[in-house]
Simulated assay, not measured.
Amino acid sequence: MPETKTRWDIFCTVVDNFGDIGVTWRLARQLVAEHDLAVRLWVDDLRAFERLCPAIDIHAAGQRQQGVEVRQWPAQWQPAEAADVVIAAFACQLPAAYMDAMAERPVPPLWMNLDYLSAEDWVIGCHGLPSVKYRHVQKYFFFPGFQQGTGGLLREHGLLEQRRQFQQDPEARRAFLQELGVDPAPGAQLISLFAYENTGLASWLGAMASDRTPTHLLVPEGRVLGDVERWLGVQGLAAGAVHVRDGLTVQVLPFIQQEQYDRLLWSCDFNAVRGEDSFVRAQWAARPMLWHIYQQEEDIHLDKLEAFLTLYTKGLSAPASEAISGLWRAWNVGGEMADHWQMTRKHWPELEKHAQAWCLEQALQADLATALVQFYGNWI
């Protein structure tokens, strides 16, 4: 008799467009491809998912995509057998009937809450601890993170080697950019911008426009386009639009799939990213970056920002640390960016080396998918 694959269920509610589904989709595919698991991904919004996976049938109750069984999470839950491992992504509440199915299994499943990424010190102490119980089924905290004692970061096997080969091949970069219709001028710095709405953008665009080094800014379709339009004095920006103001060329890109977005980050000299998924991918790109953290009530997100900066800036000289930290802080309160950008540019070579060192340091930890599988192995 062939050995039955371990069955995993991942539940995802789409909260902020693509962040939650972006993380769970990457995780589900990696668990299938690298760990030979049977994975069902339950999603409550297939229309948002369709942007990441155009092959998805948004009307199908169940379908298989890239080895993952994708299931609609309907408002009216239909009976389903509970899996061996159950992941509630980002504290989403499981259907009551499914929780009953977990409790009725002869052997209770491993039930984990996959939490949001944070660099805060308390995460290490809480990672892997028991949480609440439902009847006799115990839930556990599982925290991604940047330090030993956490669950690590999503990173597919071979990703960094793929990135290294790509970045050392100018022809591969040129061909990829050409596919996107991007043809930067010789000597221009290439920057990607993926962000939430931000009142600080106008001052940053102004600083880039007046910089002696020309800048080609690539803006994938998204929420920040309204701010770009206001600065340019235009309306209706869409994919393919190109506008030039002094030393700054602004080009709007279509929404691209995850593998293409990775290559976009690898192609750029500097990446402005947002949320969680693109934030992690920018770190694997090993380029200087700017993070727009998801805003939370009472500004508690700024504590998370400071916690990450404390880790990230270790090893930098005091002036370089002050420059990049000032840039990040200004960006995340919608402040003036020009002076901070000029200071950052002064320390560019050091920040480039640091981004590479940080990437290698993070790669010393087990990746998130492997850490989850190891946690299950230890649990049973």
Rank of each mutant, 00 (worst) to 15 (best):
F308H: 06
L46I: 03
H216I: 11
R47Q: 14
I58R: 15
E161F: 03
F141D: 01
P184G: 03
L225E: 10
E350C: 09
R71V: 11
Q138I: 04
Q76E: 15
A320Y: 04
D121T: 14
W266H: 02
P74A: 12
L205Q: 09
H243V: 09
Q165A: 15
I293N: 11
A355P: 04
S321E: 13
L217G: 05
R105Y: 13
D339L: 06
R164L: 09
T150E: 07
G145E: 12
Q165S: 14
G181S: 04
P319F: 08
Q93V: 14
F279P: 00
A330H: 11
A33I: 03
L248H: 01
S317M: 04
G206F: 00
T213F: 02
G377S: 14
L290S: 11
V123K: 09
A202F: 07
G67P: 05
P349L: 06
D9K: 02
L159F: 15
A185D: 10
T370C: 14
V280F: 06
G236F: 02
A238I: 06
V123W: 07
E81Q: 13
Q178A: 15
C92S: 03
F141Q: 01
W111S: 04
F194N: 09
L177R: 02
W8H: 11
L253R: 00
Q235L: 11
A119W: 11
V123A: 09
E350P: 07
H157R: 06
Q235N: 13
Q167F: 05
Q362L: 11
R40I: 10
Q93I: 10
R174E: 14
V244M: 00
S210W: 00
A209E: 01
L201C: 06
A307N: 00
A330Y: 08
V85G: 01
A355F: 10
F18K: 04
D45C: 08
A320S: 07
R230P: 05
R230I: 02
V333G: 06
V242A: 09
D169A: 13
G149N: 06
Q66N: 13
A330F: 08
W379R: 02
H347A: 15
T199D: 15
Q168C: 14
G128H: 09
A330Q: 15
P288C: 10
W42M: 09
A338D: 11
L110P: 04
W8A: 15
L351C: 09
Q374P: 11
T24I: 04
V39W: 02
H347R: 11
A371L: 04
A285Y: 02
Q65M: 08
F176M: 05
L160F: 00
P186F: 09
L225F: 06
R40V: 13
M102C: 10
A366Q: 12
Y196V: 05
T24Q: 06
A89P: 08
A272S: 11
D16C: 05
